[in-house]
Design a protein around this nucleic acid. Structure first.
Lengths: 216, 216
DNA sequence: ACAAAGATTGAAATTTCTCTCATTTTTGAG
DNA sequence: CTCAAAAATGAGAGAAATTTCAATCTTTGT
C-alpha cells in the first residue's frame, strides 16, 4: 500500500533470533497503526493483523498497549536524537543549534510522518519522554542565555511551549513543507526573545548553510 | 462533592420545557465527566449516572458521544467568547487586546478548569471550533500589524501556534496560577514579534490596569 | 381532571475488545 | 536430520460498552 513506510525495528532486529524479529514486527506495526488510527482508537488486533500475526501472539511480548507504546517511543526517541545530536556536536552558537535541531526534527517528520505523530502521542502516555525532551532542550537554552541571545527565563512552561510549537507544525501541516519548517523555527526563536528580523535571518542562514541539499 | 461546579446549561434551560432541561443536565454532566476522566475514557453511562438519568435516556438526545461533545463545545465557546468580546469593545491597541483576551481566557480556565479542558479536547474532534477560534484571532492580528506592533505574517500555522500556547498553559499548570497566565501572555507577544522587554512591560501594565482585582 | 403526547426507564440483546491456554508449528543447536 | 525448546496460533471465555425498545411514568394543553 505504501512503499515509503519504514521498518526501523525490523531493520534493527534483522539478523537476530526469531523472538527479537517478531518483537520488531510488532513495534513497526504499532507505529503504523498508532499513527493512522491514533493511539486511543487502536486495538490489539489492529496491530497483530498489520504484523500478520495471531492476536494471541501480542501477549507473548507485552502486557498491554501502554507497554508497547513505551518501547516504541523510546526506540524512536533514541533513533532521532542520536542522529541530530551528532550533527550538532561542532556547533556552539545556541540559536543555530536550536534552529538546526528543530529543523532536522521536522524534516524527519516529513520523511517519516508516522514517527513524530507517535512520539507526540507518547508525550502524554510515557512520562519519561517528557523529561528526556526537557533535559535535551534545557542545555541549549542555558547556553543561549549565557551567550546573550535568549532573553527569557527557563522554566517548565517555556520548554513545553517549545515542544508545542513542534507539535503544532505536525498537526497543521502533516506534509511538513519547507515553509512550515521555516516558520516553526522562526516562531520558536521569537518565543525565545529574538526579534522577527533576526529570527528570519538566522533561519534563512541555517537553511542555506546546513539544509540546502535536503529539500523534499 | 464540589461546590465550585458550574451548571451553565442547566441555568440556560431553567425555565424551558422538560426536553431542554434534560438536555441541559446531560450537557453539564458531560462537562464534568469529560474534564475529570478525559473524553476518550468517558462512557455513556458515566454521563447518565452523573446526571441521575437512566442510561437509555442519552439516546433520546444524542446518537453518540461525539454529538454530545459537539454541543458542549459550541455552548462553552459562545459563553466564553461573548464575555471577553464585550470587555474588549473599547480597546483599540491590538497587543493589549490580545493580552487581555488571553489572560481572561486563562482566568476562566482557573475558575472553571473543566471548561477549558473540554474545549481543548474538542479542538481535535469538532472541526468548527478550530475555524471559529481562527476567525476571532485573525482580526486582532491584522489590527496589530496595521498598528505596526506585530512584525509577523498571519497564516494558519501562526494562529495554531497561539492556540497551542494556551493549551500548553492548561496542561502544564492546571491550577492556572497568575504567573502561568503572565508567562503565557508574554510568550504569546514574543511569538508575535514583540521584544522580551516590551512583552514583559505590556503584560505587567495590562495586569495592573485590567486585572488587579481578579486574583485567584 | 383527563388524555394524548412526550419523556424516562432499565432489562436484555448486541457489539466489541481483551486475555487465556491447549494445541500446533517452527526454530536452531547438536 | 532430529528433537526438545521456543514461538505462534486462534477459538472461546469473560468483561465492558453500546444500543434497543416495550413498558411505564410525566408533562401539558384544554
Amino acid at each position: 500500500m505504501n512503499s515509503s513506510v519504514h521498518h526501523l525495528f525490523r531493520e534493527q532486529t534483522a539478523g537476530k533470533k526469531k523472538r527479537e524479529r517478531t518483537r520488531g514486527a510488532l513495534l513497526d506495526s504499532a507505529i503504523s497503526v498508532f499513527a493512522s488510527k491514533g493511539y486511543a482508537a487502536t486495538k490489539i488486533t489492529d496491530i497483530t493483523n498489520h504484523a500478520e500475526l495471531a492476536n494471541g501472539t501480542f501477549y507473548n511480548y507485552y502486557d498491554d498497549k501502554d507497554a508497547l507504546l513505551h518501547d516504541v517511543a523510546i526506540g524512536l526517541a533514541v533513533e532521532i536524537t542520536s542522529g541530530i545530536d551528532a550533527e550538532l556536536q561542532a556547533l556552539i552558537h545556541a540559536p543555530t543549534r536550536v534552529t538546526l535541531a528543530t529543523a532536522r526534527c521536522l524534516q524527519i517528520a516529513r520523511q517519516k510522518p508516522e514517527w513524530l505523530r507517535v512520539l507526540l502521542e507518547s508525550l502524554f502516555v510515557v512520562p519519561e519522554m517528557q523529561s528526556a525532551a526537557v533535559k535535551y532542550l534545557r542545555q541549549d537554552l542555558e547556553l543561549g542565555i549565557e551567550q546573550g541571545h535568549f532573553t527569557i527565563e527557563i522554566n517548565l512552561l517555556l520548554v513545553n511551549q517549545i515542544l508545542s510549537l513542534i507539535r503544532t507544525a505536525a498537526i497543521v501541516d502533516p506534509q511538513m513543507s519547507d515553509i512550515t519548517i521555516q516558520r516553526t523555527c522562526e516562531g520558536l526563536l521569537r518565543l525565545l526573545g529574538l526579534s522577527s528580523k533576526k529570527s528570519a535571518n538566522l533561519v534563512a542562514r541555517v537553511f542555506k548553510v546546513h539544509l540546502e541539499h535536503c529539500d523534499a
